[in-house]
């Protein structure tokens, strides 16, 4: 894995830090996509969500309730994507 490793005590980064691997899957920029939390139903753009990298996979969490919105794992042969914690993703056209 080549994910950047956060070595600070507080490991949450803003969602922009996770935009790269998600963009690879969605074949486009996800930073402006509006993600709605499946836990507390609050919505925010991807870039404002909380990201945890190299954990060992990538985890996107709701900044309001810490609910897992999405997980992404890249193995040598596959990309795994879990969006089950988010109720919707809205992409501006």
């Amino acid at each position: 894995m080549n994910s950047p490793i956060d070595t600070s005590g507080e490991s949450a980064l803003d969602g922009s830090a996770a935009a790269g691997p998600f963009a690879d899957v969605f074949a486009g920029d996800v930073s402006a996509a509006v993600v709605t939390c499946g836990g507390c139903r609050s919505s925010a753009v991807f870039a404002e969500q909380h990201a945890y990298l190299g954990a060992p996979g990538t985890v996107l969490r709701c900044p309001g309730c810490d609910h897992v919105l999405a997980r992404l794992v890249q193995t040598p042969t596959e990309v795994w994507l879990d969006l089950s914690g988010s109720s919707s993703w809205r992409f501006p056209l």
């Binding site: 490793i5 070595t7 600070s8 490991s11 996979g57 969490r61 810490d66 897992v68």
Partner: peptide, 11 residues
């Protein structure tokens, strides 16, 4: 030599 901090969620 260090001890990287890796977490799937908030501390």
């Amino acid at each position: 030599e260090g001890f990287p901090v890796l977490s799937a969620g908030p501390t």
